[in-house]
């Protein structure tokens, strides 16, 4: 029996093991789930070891002579102190570094990509479509600009939603509901395609019923 055949059988049993949960919670599902947890933890453990620790620290830091990278290792070891009750407080230091770095990084990242780029795209797409003169895009981009503005008005809670402001906020919630509905539909379809992929695997790769 070839390596790929054994692999297909293992993959098929694990797939079916997870799908048994649709009937009810059972031992086979629990074991499959436990395998998933163990293998996932091991996968990321070793992946980050080779990608981050070996490549960043060993190759660049030790072999490349960049001794300042020891700072990351010291902070990392301090983080592992969390496993001990007595010296667990030391892990606050590396955690503070992570929190600070993520706060600084995300602040600028979201400021550019989520705020400025989105505002610029909303305005520039509208002006460009007006210049081109295609009614489909003109109407579409007016909808985008109006929806974005009214959606933002809805998220502004420092003023009571009454009068013109309240009416704009109401239009904003309509757009947000359409977004949620579309996002929901999109998510359902992506999950469905995954399910079809697994069934396709069982019927074609494993049972060879379809080619």
């Amino acid at each position: 029996m070839g390596e790929s055949v054994i692999g297909a059988w293992i993959a098929a049993f694990l797939t079916l093991g997870i799908l048994t949960f649709l009937y009810k919670d059972n031992v086979i599902y629990k074991i499959s789930e436990a395998i998933f947890i163990g293998v996932s933890a091991g996968y990321w453990f070793i992946t980050l070891f080779w990608d981050n620790l070996y490549r960043k620290f060993w190759v660049v830091g030790i072999e490349g002579g960049q001794w300042e990278l020891w700072g990351g290792i010291i902070l990392g070891v301090m983080m592992l102190c969390r496993l001990s009750r007595k010296i667990g407080w030391i892990a606050r230091w590396p955690m503070s570094f992570i929190i600070g770095a993520v706060a600084g990084l995300y602040m600028m990242l979201y400021f550019t990509s989520n705020a400025m780029v989105q505002i610029r795209s909303t305005i520039s797409n509208l002006t460009e479509s007006v210049n081109v003169g295609d009614p489909y895009y003109i109407i579409g981009n007016i909808v985008v600009a109006a929806g974005t503005f009214s959606g933002l008005v809805y998220f502004y809670f420092s003023k009571e939603h009454k009068g013109v402001f309240g009416a704009t906020a109401k239009v904003g919630i309509w757009f947000i509901m359409v977004t949620f509905g579309a996002a929901f539909g999109y998510t359902v379809m992506s999950r469905m395609s995954l399910l079809i992929g697994r069934i396709d695997f069982l019927l074609s790769d494993w049972l060879k019923l379809i080619s």
């Binding site: 985008v144 009214s150 959606g151």
Partner: peptide
């Protein structure tokens, strides 16, 4: 269009 509008408001 409408989805992008709502998405942009949420993202901002």
């Amino acid at each position: 269009f409408p989805q992008t509008a709502g998405q942009r408001a949420i993202m901002i």
